[in-house]
Design a protein around this nucleic acid. Structure first.
Lengths: 205, 205
DNA sequence: TCTTCGTTGCACACTGGTGTGCAATCTACT
DNA sequence: AGTAGATTGCACACCAGTGTGCAACGAAGA
């Protein structure tokens, strides 16, 4: 060993290994996005690698999905906490939130489908923190009379960002069109008047 | 044969057979509602019958699901065409639609989850007519400036009744509370102002 | 009573996915 | 050159679900 205990690159061997590991994760996300029931074999061949290799990185299918979920949770919590730190009104915060969450939501849209069946419990558990942050934001909006109260904050937040994911999953998933539509739609169902909603999304492009 | 060619009951034998057939359908709907991945075995034992018997009525799992879907389509189209025949404003029609669709949507909420994966294509095809009717209604609303145009009618209708199903699937699925919440939420995202939405739902209880 | 037929219980073959074991191979590092 | 280790290709056992075949059993109908 020549590496004096620090983190730095054990050079290209491990790097290339991490590379394939990351590629597996990326491709798995894409493949599962198209078909949540895709097997390890499908994923492997999509990566351009043998099934056995995938098992070399992730001992089980659950591990793969879990890792994917943890990744998503990390990214989403980062966006949420950062955006939530602002002292703007809840609806403006929501707009920025959706705008910045959009690409992430689009990438990880499969998790919504994966929440049901088999790994549902595991995913649900990992996604818990995100749900809480979201509910807090909506609650804040309700308390300041910016959001409507026709649903309790917990449910409303779920339904609202469920819609964001749903639109991210639909045809218009790409381009600013989808993002704009998702933002307006979610704002509307949060009880924000249409005029205000449109003004908000056109304010900060 | 004593039955002169007509439809009437071949008496209790066939009746009891149709009875178990219907019970299988009902229970299957409930079981699949809790776990869309439930197998024929799970369904059979939930009915209180042997797996082999289920196969006696439905040659394959797909047949079961298809029959279930056809049932749902029949009921939903009935409600939709009937409600849609009225010459009321689109938003009022929507309110009545959700009110009458609610129990049906709650029963068949599993179809939304089943649309993905495996039988997705078959279900999607069968559900086509319903989607069209729905899109027409929303289009009508948009043309008369009752509904917003932030999304094309096709997508907006899907997302809107997706929300109805989503709420039907959540905790508040039972009681008028859920129905009311679903109606208001869907109206909001259709672009109906909150005051008008509340007035509408409180108008015709 | 005898027949019919839905139901049962058990058997089986088949499929498709999972996870493991192991020898062979190729490549980067020493 | 030599070695460590990631990758490969193939083997296998295992499991769960599907769909079928068939000999019973039991109750409604002739």
């Amino acid at each position: 060993m020549c590496n004096n205990g620090a983190v730095p690159t054990e050079s290209s061997r491990v790097r290339s290994m991490n590379e394939t590991r990351d590629r597996i994760l990326d491709v798995a996300l894409a493949v599962l996005g198209e078909n949540p029931d895709a097997g390890m074999g499908d994923i492997a061949s999509a990566v351009g690698v043998v099934r056995r290799t995938v098992y070399g990185h992730f001992p089980s299918r659950l591990d793969l999905v879990r890792t994917l979920t943890e990744r998503a949770v990390t990214e989403m919590t980062a966006v949420l906490t950062e955006v939530n730190a602002s002292d703007a009104e809840a609806d403006a915060t929501w707009v920025e939130f959706v705008a910045r969450l959009w690409p992430v939501a689009h990438r990880y849209r499969v998790l919504l489908a994966l929440r049901r069946g088999e790994y549902g419990e595991a995913i649900h558990g990992l996604l818990g923190p995100v749900d809480e942050l979201l509910a807090d934001l909506v609650k804040r909006g309700q308390d300041s009379d910016v959001f409507a109260r026709h649903l309790p904050a917990g449910v409303l937040s779920q339904v609202a960002y469920g819609v964001v994911f749903a639109i991210a999953d639909s045809d218009l998933s790409n381009g600013a069109l989808g993002a704009r539509a998702a933002t307006i739609t979610s704002l509307l169902m949060l009880g924000v008047p249409e005029t205000r909603a449109i003004a908000l999304v056109d304010d900060q492009p």
